[in-house]
């Protein structure tokens, strides 16, 4: 693959060239913290930021998304007919996405894009997007991507991988989509620094000192883990808020709601969370995951055991560390993962 050199002085100019063909999205400061947002005219993405508070999953899977609409106005010909909402599927370029979050997209894809079921909303948004990743040279202490089948220079899910080399970026086109974007931006100076990428990659990986072991998870019996005594201790402090699931780049659960305003109505989906009692509440009033301990166990069992068994793609976690940093009571998935991985049933 070709490696392109982008002088930082030509960065804004290239982005501006892209604006007519793409909607630009990237990390910008929103109130106190950075978030992935549509960039305004002349606005530049903060690609050198370590990472955003919320993950970029919302770019393809917004927290609230209108799917269908209907009218109850009987004077209209199409009243009471549910219709698909017109979606903006024009090309978008997502800058500054970190390799962990890009890999997360590929894990989420396993759910939204299967041979049996294709989620039109997610797929449309995903296909419209070109993901321009930013390799991580300065990870946080809570980053553990090298333990999750990912890494600071991982290319999965990306169309372009950018590497910060001081006064310029190196951009490695990974897919055709990516090459096309580089060309449109007018970034065409090839670089012969490919070996530099390899050495920087090694350095970056070495900086990730937080590790978790996952190799035994697959061989553990589901029921042994399910009945393990450590859940009481692990779940005790949990508030059952939705922070971990909402900030997680791989959590994909949603809830469908209808809302009617006057004679117009919409059907929408909103992120949901397995931490909420309502998530599993049946219409009978029965709740199979009635207590906090059930829900905490579910989250970790899904991410680390059920997913691992079902897809054979490793754990459903990319090691971005958001839940570790933002959990109000410091429940740390790394500790839980180690407990699960090392658990030996007593019988």
């Amino acid at each position: 693959m070709k490696v392109i050199k982008i002088d930082k002085t030509k960065w804004a100019e290239g982005l501006n060239k892209l604006r007519s063909d793409y909607q630009l999205i990237g990390p910008v400061k929103k109130d106190k913290y950075h978030d992935f947002q549509m960039l305004g005219k002349d606005q530049l993405p903060d690609v050198e930021l370590l990472n955003t508070r919320m993950s970029p999953k919302s770019v393809v899977f917004p927290q609230s998304e209108v799917m269908l609409e209907y009218s109850l106005d009987e004077t209209k010909e199409d009243h009471h007919i549910i219709k698909e909402v017109e979606k903006d599927a024009s090309p978008r370029a997502v800058f500054g996405i970190r390799p962990c979050d890009a890999k997360a997209l590929m894990l989420v894809k396993l759910n939204f894009d299967t041979s049996d079921y294709k989620d039109p909303y997610w797929i449309k948004a995903f296909e419209a997007s070109t993901f321009i990743g930013m390799a991580c040279d300065d990870p946080a202490s809570t980053c553990f991507c090298t333990s999750t089948g990912c890494g600071p220079y991982n290319e999965e899910g990306l169309d372009v991988l950018m590497i910060d080399v001081g006064d310029h970026y190196l951009a490695k086109g990974i897919t055709e989509k990516g090459e096309k974007l580089l060309k449109t931006a007018g970034w065409e100076d090839t670089s012969d620094d490919a070996s530099l990428i390899e050495s920087k990659k090694g350095e970056a990986e070495a900086k990730i000192t937080s590790k978790v072991a996952t190799e035994n998870l697959k061989d553990k019996a589901i029921l042994d883990l399910y009945e393990a005594p450590f859940w009481e201790d692990t779940a005790f402090s949990c508030l059952n808020c939705g922070t971990c699931t909402y900030v997680c780049p791989t959590c994909w659960c949603f809830d469908i709601q209808d809302e009617t305003h006057g004679k117009k109505g919409i059907r929408m989906r909103n992120w949901d969370s397995c931490m909420f009692p309502l998530f599993t509440l049946h219409t009978t009033g029965h709740n199979p995951r009635e207590t906090q301990i059930h829900r905490v166990r579910q989250r970790f069992m899904h991410k680390l055991k059920y997913f691992t068994d079902k897809y054979e793609k490793g754990i459903m976690c990319v090691g971005c560390g958001r839940c570790v940093r933002l959990c109000p009571v410091n429940i740390d998935i790394r500790t839980v993962c180690d407990k699960m991985n090392n658990y030996a049933a007593s019988s």
Binding site: C241, G242, T243, V329
Partner: peptide, 9 residues
């Protein structure tokens, strides 16, 4: 983001 952490804490 309506995670309800405030309420649950």
């Amino acid at each position: 983001i309506r995670c309800y952490a405030c309420r649950n804490a």
